Simulated assay, not measured.
Amino acid sequence: MNPAVRPVVCLGGANVDRKLRVAAPVLPGSSNPVSAQEAFGGVARNVAENLARGGVPVHLLTAVGQDRAGRALLDDAARCGIDTGAVLVVADALTGSYTAVLNPDGSLHLALAHMDLCEQLTPDWLAERSTRCRTAALLVADLNLPAGTLAALVTASVDADAPPLVLVAVSEAKMVRLPARLQGVRLLVLNRGELVAWAGTEAVADGVARLQAAGVQDVVVTLGAKGLCHTGVGGALVFMPAPSVPSEAIVDVTGAGDALAAGLCHGLWSGAVAAQGWSPTCTQALVRAALTVQSAATVVPDADPLSPIPS
């Protein structure tokens, strides 16, 4: 099969996003007026939608409840062009949810994640979908997956015929799920707080060096509005600034990190990273993230920033 038409398989969280934006600074212990918006989210799902809108064939492997929210989530994914044929639908369970309380400027004040269904994405569940995984062009897994499932993915990725594996962190609390041995991981995407939580050091370079010593080939550390660092030749860190976005243009930061991760995955899938290195792909990924914070949508419909950079 031509690698250019093989799909990206995204494994992990899919949920309903509820975004509550306060009208004034939060007053603890009091009722705070908010505006509310509901959309679909989850790291794996958001990455999948960004890729699908960029013209990439995508399969989503996740779990939803047999409820109205789960049906709506799957219908929406299908409209975006995402293959959901192998999604686990669980009876008598609620589809996951992510509730974000946003400050008046659109920055995140507090987030509450109900992702219990992801615990049903076990190694046995993964084994039942092994054919889809083996025939993918790229596997993208978020750390909502149980530790055993992540370990099984990493173990399988060592095989010479296995597709490249990208791991995307989701929170500082879930960094404990990252396997100790990471040989076979093509790319790990995480933010600075998640890196500190895993490595136990504030020094980004030291944390990245420890990840590479554990076996990760490349690491991208996101730094919010500052930009990102990516590993370069010989493991050296390369800093790339984010596009400048005026504070008054920021609408909602939800989904920006997932948009950036999708841009990185697109660069691997398209061959841009192999041809040009990480910097051009990171530039476009940062543009995608900047567009996302300026939109009320978790995933920006315009897919242009995922297009490969002409050589």
Results as ranks from 00 to 15, higher is better:
residue 137 A to Q: 15
residue 124 D to P: 01
residue 200 G to L: 12
residue 109 H to C: 04
residue 27 L to R: 12
residue 226 K to Y: 14
residue 93 A to N: 10
residue 13 G to P: 01
residue 292 T to M: 02
residue 221 V to L: 11
residue 141 A to Y: 11
residue 219 V to Y: 10
residue 2 N to L: 12
residue 253 V to L: 11
residue 31 S to L: 10
residue 233 V to W: 13
residue 169 A to S: 15
residue 120 Q to G: 13
residue 153 L to N: 00
residue 153 L to D: 00
residue 154 V to W: 05
residue 25 P to H: 03
residue 225 A to R: 15
residue 103 N to Y: 11
residue 163 P to Q: 04
residue 140 V to P: 06
residue 233 V to Q: 15
residue 82 I to G: 04
residue 133 C to L: 12
residue 172 E to V: 15
residue 140 V to E: 07
residue 110 L to G: 00
residue 107 S to F: 00
residue 251 V to G: 11
residue 283 T to H: 11
residue 220 V to A: 10
residue 164 P to I: 05
residue 195 L to E: 11
residue 144 N to Y: 11
residue 144 N to I: 11
residue 182 L to R: 08
residue 194 E to V: 09
residue 194 E to F: 06
residue 241 P to Y: 06
residue 17 D to I: 05
residue 30 S to N: 13
residue 178 L to W: 05
residue 76 D to H: 07
residue 303 A to N: 14
residue 299 V to H: 06
residue 194 E to L: 07
residue 168 V to I: 13
residue 239 F to T: 10
residue 71 R to W: 03
residue 251 V to H: 04
residue 308 P to E: 09
residue 42 G to C: 03
residue 295 S to C: 09
residue 180 A to C: 00
residue 157 S to E: 09
residue 152 A to E: 02
residue 121 L to N: 06
residue 144 N to M: 11
residue 287 V to D: 00
residue 138 L to N: 03
residue 142 D to T: 05
residue 258 D to F: 08
residue 307 S to A: 14
residue 220 V to E: 03
residue 60 L to T: 03
residue 219 V to I: 13
residue 177 R to K: 13
residue 290 A to R: 05
residue 301 P to I: 12
residue 123 P to M: 05
residue 241 P to L: 08
residue 174 K to Y: 09
residue 57 P to C: 07
residue 228 L to R: 11
residue 285 A to F: 03
residue 18 R to T: 13
residue 297 A to P: 03
residue 249 A to D: 10
residue 61 L to I: 06
residue 274 A to Q: 03
residue 263 G to S: 05
residue 213 A to K: 09
residue 247 S to T: 12
residue 104 P to I: 14
residue 170 V to Q: 10
residue 295 S to F: 10
residue 70 G to E: 10
residue 66 Q to R: 07
residue 42 G to A: 07
residue 125 W to S: 05
residue 163 P to N: 02
residue 166 V to E: 00
residue 126 L to D: 01
residue 90 V to F: 01
residue 176 V to C: 10
residue 229 C to N: 12
residue 152 A to Y: 00
residue 161 D to K: 12
residue 223 L to R: 13
residue 193 G to W: 12
residue 160 A to C: 08
residue 279 S to D: 09
residue 209 A to C: 02
